[in-house]
């Protein structure tokens, strides 16, 4: 078999092992995802309690809050992506393993995309029930927006998490760096959701979708290129 094909197969196997390792660890220990889901639900409840607006105004406000809650609760999973590896002594083993940095990056992004998707699966019904907004009226549009938003947040989150995990006395540096970076993503996802709720699929809707797509492509490319430098100790 061709050497490059073998390398791709090996990379895919490594990728699968890393994703399964993180998912199994989370399923067995349940340390991050339950906290993330509970925080998300708590934020939904607290925000819903404060809002009593007519439909159009409610769509405008809640579409922004929805993504803010998703990304904020998602920082739980993102923050633990590399911190848990370092705390449990897995980091050195990972560094010794002959693994291309891009495979590790892709595996971490995949796990975090899954975490954010799970969070959205819980928060969307909660939003629909509590605030009576038709989030599921256009399910394919919502899946499209959520896919781009999750991917963008996970890509930037993994990069920043890997950077801040090695910083001593890091405090809340992840949120401090992550939120300015993902602001275009947050605003874009909120605008898309708002227009989807109002059923206004105009040219502007497609432009915001392009912004989200460009954001994902730019940061994904940069992530693949710089991740090798982030892993140095």
């Amino acid at each position: 078999m061709n050497r490059s094909v073998l390398a791709v197969i090996q990379a895919l196997q490594q990728f699968r092992c890393l994703v399964v390792k993180d998912l199994l660890a989370e399923l067995r220990l349940r340390r991050v995802w339950p906290c993330m889901l509970l925080l998300g639900l708590l934020l939904v409840l607290l925000i819903e309690m404060q809002i009593d607006l007519p439909d159009v105004a409610k769509y405008q406000v809640l579409s922004g809050f929805f993504w803010l809650i998703v990304f904020f609760a998602g920082t739980f999973a993102l923050e633990r992506s590399f911190a848990s590896e370092r705390e449990e002594g897995c980091w050195r083993t990972l560094q010794l393993y002959p693994l291309p940095p891009s495979v590790l990056f892709l595996a971490k992004v995949t796990v975090n995309v899954l975490a954010l998707a799970l969070l959205e699966c819980c928060l969307i019904p909660a939003f629909v029930v509590f605030s009576n907004i038709p989030l599921l009226a256009h399910p394919f549009c919502l899946v499209g927006i959520a896919s781009l938003a999750n991917l963008g947040c996970a890509v930037v989150g993994v990069l920043v998490s890997a950077l801040t995990a090695s910083v001593p006395h890091k405090g809340n540096l992840l949120a401090l760096l992550l939120f300015p970076l993902i602001t275009p993503l947050l605003v874009g996802a909120a605008a898309l959701t708002q227009q989807m709720l109002l059923e206004e699929f105009t040219e502007e809707w497609w432009r915001w979708l392009q912004v989200l797509g460009l954001f994902v492509v730019l940061f994904f490319t940069v992530g693949i290129l710089v991740f090798e430098f982030i892993l140095e100790d």
């Binding site: 950077l163 001593p168 405090g171 540096l173 401090l176 760096l177 300015p180 970076l181």
Partner: peptide, 11 residues
């Protein structure tokens, strides 16, 4: 973002 970068560097 720059404020965040300077804070990170400072740590």
């Amino acid at each position: 973002l720059y404020a965040g970068i300077f804070l990170t560097r400072g740590g």
